[in-house]
Amino acid sequence: MKKTIGTAVLWCGILCAALWLLNALFLPKYMSRVPEGALIAEYYKETAGHDVVFIGDCEVYENFSPDLLWREYGIPSYIRGSAQQLIWQSYYLMEETLKYETPKVVVFNVLSMKYGEPQSEAYNRLNLDGMRFSRQKLAAVRASITQEESFLSYLFPLLRFHDRWGELTGEDVTYLFHRDIVSDSGYLMNVQVRPAEDVPQGRPLANYEFDPVCWDYLDKMADLCQENGVQLVLIKAPSLYPYWYDQWEEQIEAYAAQRNLPYLNFLARTEEMGIDFSTDTYDSGLHLNLYGAEKLSRWFGDWLTQNCPVEDRRGQEPYESVWQEKSAAYAARKARLEAEWSGSNPAE
């Protein structure tokens, strides 16, 4: 009997180990392609805390430079952004972040208020697969999955990605147990320039009201920040597209006033910030490039120091040594990308 139990335990152990290994092998690594998928997990490698945490979709991870905020204002910050991050995903990421640290300010980009329902499996994966197993992850998955998805596949990604057996590459083996850092404190750098020339106007909508579920989550975010003594700042990043309607703007303004929250619509301040959409965007106005992001971050750094309880932490340990390293990586990445861009675009 003992021998049978021993054999059973041994083989169950082997099965679990094999499943763990296969999960790691089949999960997309997002190193050479779609680096957005690696953003969420990078946060867990952070060793020092942050005074400012950005939460939201591509309008935060493409538009703000934490490195500039550090270099010029001494503000340690991080962007917990991911592609088409839905508001409930933002909420659970915020809740999870507050488990690890208590920043002074959380900045939330309000574009995701436009989505009242789960959107697509592909984006869900980019947002949720990187989250560590936690109550927040389970809740985020439950809130996010589309009809065709299975909850279980977020716990055992092999169930979703098993069909990659024909497309596994060396990258899947190389990054089996580790990942390279693809962002700079959550900022996904892009130095290319593609001017915004013909920005389409928004089509009239049948209904401009945000979905009640979005208001619920925005409320929960505000409440959570209040409970934790964190200043919530609502922003709308200066992306020309997707179109931001005046009716939406009015609703957010009214909400911010009602909850006594600062709300900054950067679209209305681009001139003040010096953003030039002929040089400061890499995709015709959807997102800023590095130069635009630094202009926006500089303006926002000024605003933060004047309006929020952030302090200049330059010279303080462990921030100083951590950010020195980060700044060096940022500068190196910038130099490499600029060289690549000018190499592929000699006319520039």
């Binding site: 054999t7 041994l10 083989w11 099965l15 499943l19 296969l22 596949s153 979703r160 069909d163 057996w165």
Partner: peptide, 26 residues
Amino acid sequence: SPHLAWGGCVLLVLLTLIFGVYGIGF
């Protein structure tokens, strides 16, 4: 050998999980 039987079971589970036609896309 009981190890062969158990090994067979484990192999079947793994092969089915990897090569089975199920989930999104199928």
